[in-house]
Design a binder for these strands. Sequence first.
DNA 1: GATCCACGGGAATACACGGATG
DNA 2: CATCCGTGTATTCCCGTGGATC
Length: 396
Amino acid sequence: MDLTTRIRRRQRSGDDSQLVLDYDAISPVAHLREPTGRGSVLERLLDYVDPVFDDRLPRNAYVWGPPGTGKSAVVTALFARLGRLRSLSGSVIHTSTRGGTGVTPDLVSVDARHADSDFGLYRAILDAVLEEFVPEHGVSTETLHARLSEYLAPYDRRILVALDHVGEPDARRLVELASALDTVPDSLSWVAVGRASPSTLPEAVRPPDRIEVPAYREHALVDILTARASAGLARRAVEHEQLRQIASWADGNAHDALSALFAAAHAADSAGASRVRERDLWDGMNAVPRPSVSLGRVLALPDSRQQVLRRLVTLGEEGTSVSAAADAIAGSPAVDLSAGTVQRLIYELANDGIVERVASDRSNGAGRPPSRLEPQFPTAVFRQLYDIQPSSIAEA
DNA sequence: GATCCACGGGAATACACGGATG
DNA sequence: CATCCGTGTATTCCCGTGGATC
């Protein structure tokens, strides 16, 4: 057990109940080292990356499928594992900028939600590939581009980049990413991970290799829930039949299923129960809006946005309108933003679909009626995950 | 001095309503 | 009765500024 896990366990409130042993294990945003139930997808991905074993570079590719199907999980796990295997084999000093003898392609994962400019994209790749620190300020996009090109220039240097979450609501679109990568030497390939069907991609960026990741079958989802529950919950905390209910309700979406399990377990735990009761199960499923914005996306938002959301989900009466919510949030000592900025952020979040503005039914005369705010993600799960983030441990 | 980015602030625009107008 | 107008909010849009850094 690592330190973070230990700290998290200690952080649990209410020491008596031992229902949830490890929130991380049942977290919808944590990816397991061994993804469950995605064997055939994994096989296809292995076929795709096969050239890497011969120190060659695969072509561009596109992995796609609906939300909550483990696309990211599989690709992330594969890249991590390959990177680890390679460094174990010791045949390549891939992180060294000095060596120059490396021939195995570098494997880099980039979250398109973070690399939201050409600058960010180049920086993310360089940062993964170079040992030295890559500046975040004070240097032009052009400079980073040149550095990347320079890195790739030697004949035997190659990079395979996984572009995760491509084209999702607040990530860049593949077209933009691809064209940014088009201008570097072609000893760089990418494998994009997204939701949209390849037929919706412009022909110019539609890669030759495509791997579809279909929704989970119900029994596969039950397996996933079972594995997670046994890793993170006390023995017998939840019954097989309850997991089956969640799986059936989640309709193939692992994110939603795990969120419901998480929320149910948390509800039971904080009520001091030793097992998930029917009402907890019910609460858990009700805690997840359908469709739900993925928590991975919420937790990938810039800090200021997450702070705003964290306060927003605990507002009561003060949250009845955008401006009232903004005032209340800006007034919180934990938030260091002006009310105007908070308000703008809320509107931005609403535009991105992370919260929904609902037209108020009652109008009291003058002016345009304010709208109510409804988060489109599992708020209970978000609160818990946000509060146990390492950063908040540091602050505490 | 240059660079990127997040903030902040405010102008411009959209909308809802009641009342006035033709 | 159908439209237009004025007023008061809500929402969107835009851009300058300053921090942090090289």
